[in-house]
Design a protein around this nucleic acid. Structure first.
Lengths: 218, 218, 218, 218
DNA sequence: TATGAATGAGGTTTCATTCAT
DNA sequence: GATGAATGAAACCTCATTCAT
């Protein structure tokens, strides 16, 4: 759980807040963002009342969960870049670090609602943009190095990774954690410069993956 | 719309049935399997009553939509195999023919509920199994031809294609149809025999992607 | 089925009408007057359309069933009186002739709705009144004969018989037909002049059991 | 309202629960077990939500009402037996104490649904069985005393009393409360040993009036 | 005329959110 | 501050009735 822009909270209140976000993250990832609020509360081990005191409505909870997840990913990405000077390898690692992203993916790829909530939250958007900026740097460097194919851009990579990481509930338990790693690996093979059968369409940039469409529920 | 096991319906009833399935397919794909039934009915241009007369509950509607979609995919696959003797190319085409699969993907990848409904419908399962069998044949042939990497199996390909085809709502309209084609292409590049950085884990077979987990709601 | 005030009907229409009344009688007796109209139609072996062509709404069906039943009872009563000169014995027989009354009882004792429908049907009311008049004659004669206790009147007897005849669904099949006969017999024993522990309250007359309260649903 | 097997409820919740049962009892007795839940809620002065929180569906409400009513009857019966050493007189009193039984009667005699619900509730069945056991004791004693006719058994008496107590909605207000007392009295006269014209059929025992028929709606 | 399909009003049930304890 | 009870709006589903075939 990362430091938030929330005032100062009493220790126990703080603890409750964290338990709720953790629970919401798990429940949202598992069963979607439409689960009954009672269920989130139960999972967090608090009463609904407490949940609502902390997050006045579902949207604000989704927002908090998203912000927290994006933030974690951002930290992670920063650390990786710092430690790995090779752009391609840094990119690979980031794409593989899956789990931290799972929640974001469920939130952004699967739920129209979550998407529009997130997109209208300047707080989260800032974090997200900074993350995309970092990846964008890696992408350009990797392409300059001749490691990454040229007909691709940051947006493509963001979408592809999220898809691969999304995971597939329908696989047997044993494979559920295995699969994402395999698919990221296949993708990486497909992304290498030397494999290039030219791609159809045109590169999707970082800017293009952030939308603000205020669409309906998912 | 494919011929169903339904008794015989009066012409108008038949027409309505088809309109409902078409509408449900669109709406489910667009907004998930939990949309209000009223909305499905409205989209189909019929009253709720009619919807319920034809499909006594949501599950039975999902089942019908799934069966129909699987069936379409199966026809498609058969036709492709017949016309394209080269296994790799046939596989590529099948993976690209996207749209027909979109609904199935939304249903199976995204909705726990749909999954468990489909898995308990022998009718649909049969169709699905036949489809996987055909793909399995192609996969083996393509591997024997040295076109497809060896450390992959039919299950992987099924999952990967569905992920890539799933499409991403958050992209701007213009890109929404473009993206899947690009990602399938990247994947195919990643799947070629010559690119093989060995993959982690082990191949996921056709059998493994069919589950019967009777899980909770999505 | 008795002759009705309905115009002249084609033979097959007539037949349908009768089948519907018979079916409705059975179904109403078995499951109450609120059964789905479809079920009445199905039992009668006709489509709902036909049912509605004959009886434009549920009320009119209830009315027809009630009239038919009352009428049957009336015929029966007349015949009994003609053949049995002894008032007490005639009364006993009438009270025992149960089955014909079953439907009326379900309709009048159990369903507020049926009651108010029947009570606002002059046609049926006439038949009912005539029946009560006949019974009233027997009651007075039996009392004059010293066979029937004095502190009782026709209304009491009507109510008591209907209660006893009502039958009890919850009894095992074998007893279901047995029970009414027993209870009528107990009642008759209780009604004999010689047993008289004086009754509380006052006699309930024939007039009092016909109400026109337009009450709510049952 | 009697003490229930419910965990422990907050004072206000407890109060609401009781109000709901009381209201349901009244409304069920008055208009049958199929009244809109909204109406039960309105009568109890709570929102539907509250009703559903306490009783997740109609069945569970019916069950609670039935249990409560049976329990009241049981208490009553125990008290009567304790205070009245003469079996016949105790039996008479029990049969007369009507009102407490009214609800049970409506529930068991009139509604197929209620019957099957009650019969599948071990909780209620236990209470009911204990009640029948007590009555059975009285019946045997009264017969040994030569006060009660011999060709009758507990089941008959249970059924007869419920019928007589059932009351008749169609009577004018003034008579509605009067009638049951009269009919119980007639019955008692019919049940006395000295009046015995032998009854048709055979005695219906206590065991026979408890059924488990899982029948359809009423 | 008979049929069974279509409609929509109304009852049922769930759950987000508010509020008393 | 935390809890869980109460509320009511909104979704679900059934069925009386109408109407095309």
């Amino acid at each position: 759980m990362t430091t938030e822009t929330t005032p100062r909270l009493r220790a126990d209140a703080r603890r409750n807040r964290d338990r709720i976000i953790t629970a919401a993250q798990a429940v949202f990832t598992e069963r979607g963002t439409e689960v009954p609020m009672e269920e989130v509360a139960r999972t967090a081990g608090v009463g609904v009342g407490t949940l609502y005191r902390r997050f006045p409505d579902r949207d604000s909870l989704i927002r908090a969960v998203a912000h927290d997840a994006f933030d974690t990913v951002l930290q992670d990405t920063r650390a990786t870049i710092e430690q790995e000077p090779d752009a391609w390898r840094a990119l690979s690692q980031i794409m593989h670090r899956g789990m931290a992203l799972r929640t974001v993916v469920r939130l952004t790829v699967l739920s129209t609602r979550a998407r529009s909530i997130i997109n209208s939250d300047p707080n989260t958007e800032a974090v997200n943009n900074e993350f995309l900026l970092l990846v964008d740097g890696l992408v350009r460097r990797a392409q300059a190095d001749g490691a990454l194919r040229d007909d691709i851009s940051t947006g493509d990579i963001a979408v592809l990774s999220s898809l691969a990481l999304q995971g597939v509930q329908s696989l047997p338990e044993e494979l559920r954690n295995l699969a994402p790693a395999r698919y990221i690996a296949v993708l990486l093979d497909g992304l290498r410069a030397q494999n290039s059968r030219p791609l159809p369409g045109r590169p999707i940039t970082a800017q293009e993956v952030v939308v603000r469409t205020p669409e309906r529920e998912d």
